[in-house]
């Protein structure tokens, strides 16, 4: 009887706790600096962190498999360089964009293939490929920035829409990223590929014995990470109008942090795409909050770390209590 009662009880989605932490942070910063809550501020904040959010949404796949990719920042960089150089060379903008995304996919597939062939964890393989992709990027752009400055290029709707020259109530990049999250969520939780990813992360040996082609799925997941990083690269190029040798260098920590804060465990077997979006927003709110509250630069790194630990703590307390009830 009591079991029946429990099953009928409304269940909050698993992202509830992390959404609670986000609302809490926004509320606290907003109550102390009301200008923070201006809609345009919040939208610009979300737009600024949208590319790292997109990557966080995709790295959930790899974390769910118990793997981690260290090279996606440099895949993003090199994809943007490929697209940018193609545009400068006179290749039509949309074909250049496609080239950048395909380049990202190839780099991701190389990561996956190397991990499978060498029978090594992805983290070790990508430790090496990250440097390779960075090196190729530096050689390709002669260690300088890639800036498509031609007026005809800048007039293309790709640059105008992403660069904010076309007025939309919500930044275009944000609309695109939210749409991508629907696709990523659907693919992880509603398709055979997604179930297989989660099954491999839950128990790789059992997945193999159940007939899941684990090697192929691993390569596909890495390719997906590459494609999404490539999309991130071309979005960056359109959003900022240039790509620098350092672009993507510092993405690893905020992206992985966003996925973990969002509720995806490092141990694999589970993952929440929407949680990673909220996690990315938490990372963003902390960054913006530090500036709005006027916290001195010397203190900001410490405060960032403390607030991240605390956000995870709030999430964990709520999660553990929820599990105890069920």
């Amino acid at each position: 009887m009591s079991k029946k009662t429990k099953s009928k009880r409304f269940k909050f989605p698993e992202e509830t706790s992390v959404i609670f932490a986000l609302i809490l942070l926004v509320g606290i910063v907003g109550s102390m600096r009301p200008t923070f809550l201006k809609p345009e501020n919040l939208l610009n904040l979300a737009a600024s962190y949208s590319i790292s959010a997109l990557l966080a949404g995709c790295i959930v796949y790899l974390l769910s498999m118990g793997e981690i990719d260290l090279s996606f920042g440099w895949i993003l960089n090199l994809s943007a360089v490929v697209a940018g150089l193609a545009m400068i060379a006179g290749i039509p903008v949309w074909i250049s964009i496609l080239l950048g995304i395909v380049a990202g996919g190839i780099m991701g597939a190389i990561n996956g293939a190397l991990a499978v062939v060498m029978r090594l964890p992805l983290i070790i393989v990508t430790l090496g490929t990250a440097s390779i992709f960075q090196g190729i990027s530096l050689i390709s752009n002669k260690s300088g920035s890639v800036v498509p400055t031609d007026e005809k290029l800048r007039a293309n709707i790709f640059f105008r829409a992403l660069g904010g020259e076309i007025d939309t109530p919500i930044p275009f990049i944000l609309i695109f990223v939210v749409f991508s999250f629907f696709v990523l969520h659907f693919t992880l939780h509603k398709t055979r590929f997604g179930y297989r990813v989660l099954a491999i992360g839950s128990n790789p040996e059992a997945a193999r014995l159940a007939g899941i082609p684990t090697k192929r799925i691993k390569i596909l997941a890495c390719t997906l990470m590459g494609v999404v990083s490539g999309i991130g690269g071309v979005l960056f190029l359109g959003f900022r109008g240039a790509v620098d040798p350092s672009t993507g260098a510092n993405l690893l920590l905020p992206v992985v942090a966003a996925a973990i804060i969002g509720g995806t465990p490092l141990s694999g077997g589970a993952g929440t795409v929407w949680g990673s979006l909220v996690g990315a927003l938490i990372v963003g709110v902390i960054g913006v909050g530090i500036v709005f509250l006027g916290i001195d630069a010397v203190w900001s790194t410490l405060v960032t770390g403390l607030v991240i630990i605390f956000a995870i703590g709030v999430d964990q307390i709520v999660r553990v209590r929820k599990n105890r009830i069920s």
């Binding site: 609670f20 932490a21 809490l24 942070l25 606290i28 910063v29 102390m32 909050g289 530090i290 509250l293 006027g294 916290i295 001195d296 203190w299 405060v303 403390l306 607030v307 605390f310 956000a311 703590g313 709030v314 307390i317 709520v318 209590r321």
Partner: peptide, 19 residues
């Protein structure tokens, strides 16, 4: 939950004190 809320609030308020 309330404890977590209060502690987070305290942390951010303390942090803003170094402004």
């Amino acid at each position: 939950r309330w404890m977590a809320l209060a502690l987070t609030a305290a942390m951010v308020v303390t942090a803003s004190g170094v402004a």
